[in-house]
């Protein structure tokens, strides 16, 4: 019985030593990070959210983007999601090849990919002039990005066209009066 413990350790030790991006990473929300960013300094974590804005591919081999952990990440307004306040986002830095494989980031025309980004939280990074961001080592796609379709309201377009016609007519009348 006494030999079982060391034997098990010998069996599982190699597994423990294999680097695993998700290992020891705790799940943290964007809101928690924004509320007390200093508390998470240097910690390895996984954060779930939608990538939005741009993928900035830099010459040093890194890519930057923004990870939003708000309700719009799962329910965009154009897909019937409800208004729930301002966005809640953090900056992320990841190896360019990791980002290159992803769908376009979220914007007016797109729902960005919903991902679980795992990495280290850099708070006031000395090497980057005091910036704060998640230094990502791996990204797991939870839901692919998709194109969003906007709905043109014909009533709005009609009212707009009508008002423009009225304005042009009034402009013609006022010009006629001032010259006459």
């Amino acid at each position: 019985m006494r030999r079982i413990g060391p034997a098990l350790l010998l069996v599982f030790l190699p597994a423990l030593l294999i680097p695993n991006p998700g290992w020891a990473a705790t799940d943290v929300t964007v809101s928690e990070l924004l509320q007390d960013p200093a508390a998470f300094e240097g910690r390895t974590m996984s954060v779930v959210g939608e990538l939005v804005g741009d993928y900035g591919f830099r010459r040093d081999g890194w890519a930057w983007s923004q990870l939003n952990g708000d309700s719009y990440a799962t329910a965009p307004l154009l897909e019937g999601g409800a208004l729930s306040g301002s966005n809640a986002g953090i900056g992320i830095r990841a190896p360019a090849h990791v980002i290159r494989a992803l769908d376009p980031p979220g914007d007016y025309h797109h729902r960005g990919p919903l991902v679980r980004a795992t990495g280290t939280w850099r708070y006031h990074d000395e090497d980057r002039g005091g910036e704060t961001y998640l230094d990502v080592t791996s990204i797991e796609v939870l839901r692919s990005g998709a194109e969003l379709s906007e709905g043109l309201n014909p009533v709005v377009a009609g009212v707009g066209a009508f008002l423009v016609v009225i304005a042009l007519w009034l402009g013609y009348r006022s010009r006629k009066r001032s010259t006459g």
């Binding site: 043109l152 008002l163 423009v164």
Partner: peptide, 14 residues
């Protein structure tokens, strides 16, 4: 959709 809303705005200003 935003284009239509700009049309309304231009019409209202004009």
């Amino acid at each position: 959709a935003p284009a239509a809303s700009f049309l309304v705005m231009i019409g209202a200003f004009g």
